[in-house]
Design a protein around this nucleic acid. Structure first.
Lengths: 263, 263
DNA sequence: ACTAATTTGTTCGTATGTATG
DNA sequence: ACATACATACGAACAAATTAG
């Protein structure tokens, strides 16, 4: 495991150099541990500090930090001390358009969200999903969603900045994304396509969702449209042990015949 | 933007070195473009090939590839040529009464089943789901379903024997249950209710499906009805990496192009 | 079945640019 | 102006896994 070693007044942390596990992964895991223990509430150490502390190269440190930043656990800017992203526990109403959470709503569970990221950025992959150029600025909102006070989903949404910039100043702690969007831009989603699959969450996602290795997740990708134009790309990772999608099909003779008489 | 340049029979691609946009991002965007154009269907180029091709360092190439891998567009392993990842072999719209057999066929994959169990038995729990007495005899069919020759799903179905006895002599290796049922009994399903959740397969299921610990499954419980009467209880365990469910609002038959998995 | 070549994964070092405090 | 800290980019080496012969 990871040990501590006091030498000449300097605390250094030892990693396993056998190669059994990559250094950057050990570092990442250790940092998540210390982070969850509240060790960095006063401030997150810089890259060079970590290089000194763990006796690894800066490249290795960055490899670990990159994941933490990508997962929203740490926010960092140039020349500024990195900080642990604040976990502001706030009430958040359900997105009524989101049929996936209909069962949650029906179950009468308390819905809360922690806003982890709210900024403007570019993302080539997401832009492609919205039929936009790769460099198009996008408003990005990431929330950890809680039901009955416990994490149940990680929700990431991207919208074209050209359209959605007014919402970046919004306080999402008490308002739904769609409500703010409609109020400030007049845009109202009227169509969506989504794809639901089963995945094993990454360690980082597992840490956020506070679930063990025996829990799988539903990974939901969704494109929302307004007036035929794609205005939202969303990815939601839902704990599979607490939530299920239900579907009910009324009688439809045509489709039935097509499905039953194949070949 | 990005140009092509033929020199001494070698096609190299020029990136903008002004620093306006990071090289790795330009590379990422260009690769996505080429990927969507189907240029890599025969095989994704290796890191060193890209280094040669774009005249950048391997570090920069890896930075671009990392995003593509993180977004699930490309899969890479040690010593093996990276490949373009098929999002999912099969996608199934949620708004129809579907049959696994039909959706696999629709995806253009060869369909085959290994019949593991086909008999008549009683099951109190399942009978309850069908609104029947606990001792009611049920026809039970368990199949390991293969798509393109590879394990795809474990499918267990129970039907009232009083209704479905004629099917126990059928050969299900290459035929759909619904087709046999309609042919031999005249019963056609016209309604269903199902619940879909994500689970981690048990070691036994994992062995049957021949998948590693990184693969989750969709667990689908379904009650099928005909003329208002429950006639089928089904449990299907589908490999999450090969199957995705799609939903559309408002109801339409257009499909989501691609569902990537975030890592 | 074994060896060698290939390819990705990991890790180090170094350098420059840029934004913040 | 200066130090700090992240972003980008180059080069080099070895490990680990696969594939080709």
């Amino acid at each position: 495991m990871i040990g501590e070693c006091e030498t000449a007044g300097v605390t250094s942390r030892a990693l396993d150099r056998s190669g059994a596990r990559p250094l950057w992964r050990q570092l990442q895991d250790d940092l998540i541990h210390r982070l969850r223990a509240g060790e960095f509430d006063a401030g997150f150490p810089g890259e060079l500090t970590l290089v000194e502390d763990y006796r690894v190269s800066r490249h290795t440190v960055r490899q670990a930090l990159q994941r933490l930043r990508a997962d929203g656990l740490v926010v960092a800017e140039r020349g500024r001390q990195p900080r642990v992203s604040p976990a502001a526990d706030v009430e958040q109403p359900l997105d009524t358009l989101y049929s996936l959470f209909a069962s949650v709503e029906a179950a009468g569970l308390a819905q809360r969200s922690v806003v982890r990221v709210l900024d403007v950025r570019a993302d080539g992959v997401v832009a492609d999903r919205l039929d936009l150029e790769g460099s198009t600025p996008l408003v990005h909102l990431e929330r950890l969603r809680l039901a009955a006070g416990r994490p149940f989903a990680i929700d990431r949404v991207w919208l074209p900045a050209e359209l959605a910039t007014p919402i970046v100043t919004a306080d999402f702690t008490r308002t739904s994304l769609y409500a703010v969007l409609a109020e400030r831009t007049g845009v109202r989603l009227d169509a969506s396509r989504e794809s639901i699959r089963a995945v094993v969450p990454t360690p980082a996602e597992r840490a956020l969702l506070e679930c063990g290795p025996d829990v799988a997740c539903l990974s939901v990708h969704r494109q929302g449209r307004a007036g035929g134009r794609p205005v939202e790309w969303r990815h939601t990772m839902v704990r599979g042990d607490r939530f299920a999608v239900t579907a009910e099909f009324p009688a439809d003779t045509r489709r039935l015949r097509r499905g039953a008489t194949t070949r």
